[in-house]
Structure formats: C-alpha cells, structure tokens
C-alpha cells in the first residue's frame, strides 16, 4: 500500500509562518490561490508583488516572492513604475476594498484604462478590516459598520461600488471577473480566474482584474462558517459572480 499526495502546500507559500489573519478569514485562501497560480505557471523567479495597506499589508510574509509595500491605494501606480522598467517581470497587486475602491479609486481606474499587461487581485469583504470594521465603499446598504452603526444608508453614504462593472466600461482591460471564496465550488472558479489573470500577463495579453468576494468574520461579527453563508446570501446578490470582460 502506498500513498500519493493529492493536495499539499505549494512551494511559493512560505512554510512555518503563521498568518496574522483572524480565524476563518478568506484572505488566506486568496493568498494560497495566488501562490498556486504562480507555481503552476512556473513564474516564481519573475513575479513581483505589491502589498497594499490594510489587512494584506503583510502578504509578503506568506509568499516567497519579491515584494514592495505601497502606500494606501497606490499599488497600481507602483506596479506601472516597475513594469515600465521591467516588462519582462510578472507584476501584480493584491488590494482590499478600502485600498482599491476608496483611496485608490483614481489609481486603479487609470491603471486599468492604460491596459498594460498587469494583474490585480482585489479582495472585496465589504468593510475596512485592519482599522476595525469601518464602512467601506463596498459596504452593503443596511450593513452595520463602526462608522454606520445603524447600517449604511444611500442617503448618507451613497451606494456600494461595483468595481468589476465600473471597470468593464473601459476599453482597456483584457479580463475582468468576479469570484467568491465562500464555498468550495466558488474557490475552484476563483483559482481558475486568478491563474488566468497571471497567464494573461505571461502571454502579454493586457490588464487582468479579479474581484474576490471574501469574508471578514471578525468585523462582520459572525463565525467563519456563518460568514461564508452571509456572503452567499448578501454579497453575491449585489455583486454577481461572473466574467465581465474577456478578450478571447
């Protein structure tokens, strides 16, 4: 009798490192999918990551890759700065919704529109996580946060921003897809999307943007499994999954 490993740790994941994420936070899943994509494409020596400000600021502790920490929202500009000098490298940003859809809205819109071959992984968990649960541009109507204790209202705060739909109106991007991490079937699709977003860059095929619906059990005040349920029932109806743009 012998054994075959069917699923184990991918080499880019830095073993023996505890992540700082709260139990059940799906940032870890998204990190792993990025690592798997990079390993399956064999681009570890070529990849350069740009860390955001927010919970994922320490992403470089978990991935064995070249990394730089950007200022809040500015990761796409840093990515262009690198890609201008090193078009031979695979440059990606990993940003949360406060970082990308609020303070960095200007940078991401122009980054997508300029349409160089780059990869963006955008984590949407509808809240500011690291700062302790404040309202994000993606916070749903009625959703409670520490800066809207009775729930977000359209009158006071406008409507949650749908980044994929917004960016898909631009001529530039090659590939835009929204995925989720709330159940295994979604995770498999998320993996395929993230891998494709890197593969596009390897093949010099333009800008790829993947929005990943993710959980924040701590700031949502839910247990990890309940948080996945909440995402399914509340986020996916407002942020529909699917491909919004594909050059093929």
């Amino acid at each position: 009798m012998s054994e075959t490993k069917v699923f184990g740790m991918t080499p880019t994941w830095r073993r023996d490192v505890h992540t700082h994420y709260c139990p059940g936070c799906t940032h870890g899943v998204a990190h792993r999918l990025v690592c798997e994509a990079i390993d399956e494409l064999g681009i570890r020596d070529e990849a350069i990551g740009i860390a955001p400000v927010g919970c994922a600021v320490l992403i470089h502790q978990y991935m064995d890759l070249d990394f730089i920490e950007a200022a809040h929202g500015r990761a796409p500009a840093v990515a262009y700065g690198i890609k201008a000098v090193r078009p031979d490298k695979i440059v990606f940003t990993y940003q949360g919704d406060g970082d990308l859809a609020s303070i960095g809205m200007g940078e991401i819109v122009h980054a997508v529109n300029r349409a160089w071959p780059l990869t963006v992984v955008f984590i949407n968990n509808a809240i500011y996580g690291m700062t302790g649960g404040q309202m994000a541009p993606t916070t749903l109507l009625g959703q409670k946060a520490t800066t809207c204790l009775s729930g977000r209202t359209a009158e006071a705060n406008g409507y949650p921003v749908r980044m994929c739909e917004l960016l898909a109106t631009l001529e530039g991007p090659a590939y835009i897809e929204r995925v989720a991490l709330s159940k295994p079937q979604h995770i498999l699709k998320a993996k395929a999307a993230i891998k494709k977003a890197f593969e596009n860059q390897v093949n010099n095929k333009g800008f790829s943007f993947i929005e990943v619906l993710s959980t924040c059990p701590t700031n949502w005040g839910l247990r990890p499994v309940e948080a996945c349920q909440w995402l399914e029932e509340n986020m996916i109806p407002y942020y529909p999954l699917g491909v919004f743009k594909d050059f093929e």
Binding site: G81, V85, G106
Partner: peptide, 26 residues
C-alpha cells in the same frame, strides 16, 4: 527608455517608487 505619463502627481511619485525599487535610475 520609457516615458510614462501618470494621472496625477500622486501616481507619479508612486510610479517613481516602483521604478526606483528595480534599481534603475528614475
């Protein structure tokens, strides 16, 4: 070389940061 026009000075300085991080003169 490459001339890259930014969308703002905020972007310029952060592009500069990315470029500088590669070790080239920017």
């Amino acid at each position: 070389g490459v001339y890259l026009q930014s969308e703002s000075e905020v972007a310029s300085i952060n592009m500069l940061m990315g470029g500088a991080a590669t070790g080239y003169r920017v």
